[in-house]
Simulated assay, not measured.
Amino acid sequence: MTGRLHQYFAGDHTAKGFRALYQSNFQGLDRVFVLNGSSNAVKGALIKKLANKWRNKGFDVELVHCSTDQDSMDALVIPQLKVGVYGAEEDFRAAGSSIDYIYTDRALDTSLVESYQRDRKVYQEELAALYEAAHESFATGLHIHDGLEEIYINKMDFKKADQVAEELIDTLYGDMDQLEKSATVKHRFFGASTPAGVVDYIPNLTDDLKKRYFIKGRAGTGKSTLLKKIAAAGEALGLDVEIYHCGFDPDSLDMVVVRELGFCIFDSTDPHEYFPDKDSDEVVDLYERTVEPDTDERYDTAIKILNRSYKYHMKKGVGYLHEAKMMMDEFEGQYSDAIDFAKLGIVYETIDDAILHHAAAAEQ
């Protein structure tokens, strides 16, 4: 039987710069393989191959996608084996884990790699400039979005919002006793701004849950605050909680998942709008419950102007990410000539054999 696959982002270019949440998803692992090397494409290919192998062996697998290229991979986690493979460039530490460093340049022609490295500094500087331009565009979009939020905040009944939160917390957790364990809280991104636009894996992450709550509302109607309260209540009970941050504003939340109780609750509005398609799905409409009626109609012109301006800057930021992706593809393309596939196979087997030995030892 093929294992389940869960996909998500743990690093993203946001309105507040690049944010990395990788560490959070590697907590509790016994062994982590850190891939060090010049080519991200080579590291991503190794991660994909390992994920396919172990998923086909029946193990559940988590694939962490790269926000600068959503078709590439930053990391792999095999929860049942407590094993992870990390290939992103951000600094990484895994408290309590045994770490194996794998040098993927062993699979490349050294002389060709050395010639590419001469251009690497200029390439990285140009790439950094494009990412900074994207962050600035997203930051401008966030500032405009704050103006949009203000319209609804001024017309919102906060007592009613508190009541909705209390009702949901009671529905989700009831009179459940605190568990005799500490909660494990993992932080991820709900979606990410990628060269192809905003991408998320919400159906993949939620389809196997018994109950899904779709939050509808507007900017500023308390969706993130509601989610923070639900996450905090679950954590206080000792439940393991997955917290999904907004890919636009990382200090805001877009989804909470508690798999032990089989539920998720998420912001289901543009640019990640979903609608119920199961009998057990339920809508929570914060606009209807908490905002003064006819607010949309009364402020229609201002809302349209702010939305148009906000989306313009978001699109502009994505354009910079697209430019960066084209530059990355061109630079990474050089490495295709340098790959020694026999040596690449050896690198793969080195990691796979180590995971096999770890799995065998864990069974004893």
Rank of each mutant, 00 (worst) to 15 (best):
Y116W: 15
S39Y: 01
K43I: 03
V113Y: 04
A75E: 07
I230P: 04
P195W: 01
G220H: 00
A129P: 05
L344V: 05
H187A: 11
L63P: 15
Y310V: 14
E235K: 01
I99R: 09
E149W: 12
I169K: 05
A233R: 07
D207V: 12
K343R: 10
T110K: 13
I230Y: 02
T225W: 02
R118G: 09
H65S: 09
D91F: 14
F331N: 06
D281R: 08
R93M: 15
D285T: 03
E292S: 09
M327G: 12
L112P: 06
A161P: 01
A128Q: 11
D281S: 03
A165F: 03
L172P: 02
V283P: 06
L81N: 05
G247I: 00
A75I: 10
A161R: 01
G317D: 04
L306A: 12
K159V: 10
D175R: 11
T194G: 06
K210M: 14
E90C: 13
D71Q: 11
N36K: 15
D300A: 14
K53Q: 13
T295W: 00
D74L: 07
K57M: 10
K43G: 02
I243G: 00
D208S: 08
A361M: 14
I99D: 06
E332D: 08
P293Q: 02
D340E: 06
S252Q: 07
D100W: 09
H187Q: 13
S309L: 13
Y101S: 12
Q124R: 15
H358C: 04
S137L: 08
I243H: 04
L261I: 07
A134G: 06
F158E: 03
V113M: 07
T68P: 08
K160V: 01
R120Y: 15
K43R: 04
L253Q: 08
G84W: 01
D69E: 07
E323A: 14
R118Q: 14
F275D: 15
A45S: 12
Y8R: 13
A41N: 12
I47N: 01
L286P: 00
K159I: 12
R55V: 05
R118W: 15
F341A: 11
F33H: 05
N40R: 13
R289Y: 02
E323S: 14
K229M: 08
E273H: 13
V347Q: 01
G37K: 00
L205P: 09
V199L: 08
L127M: 13
K325P: 12
G238Q: 05
V164I: 03
V85E: 01
Y213E: 03
G217K: 00
F189T: 02
L172I: 02
H65N: 09
Y131N: 12
D270N: 15
S280H: 04
D267T: 02
D60C: 02
V42H: 03
Y123Q: 08
Q70V: 14
H143A: 10
K48A: 10
S224M: 05
R289M: 04
L142C: 10
D353V: 13
V283M: 07
G222M: 01
A231M: 01
D249V: 04
Y103W: 14
K43H: 04
A359K: 07
K343F: 05
V122E: 13
I153F: 11
H272N: 04
D157I: 00
S72R: 05
M156W: 02
K316Q: 12
D71S: 11
L63T: 14
I202W: 00
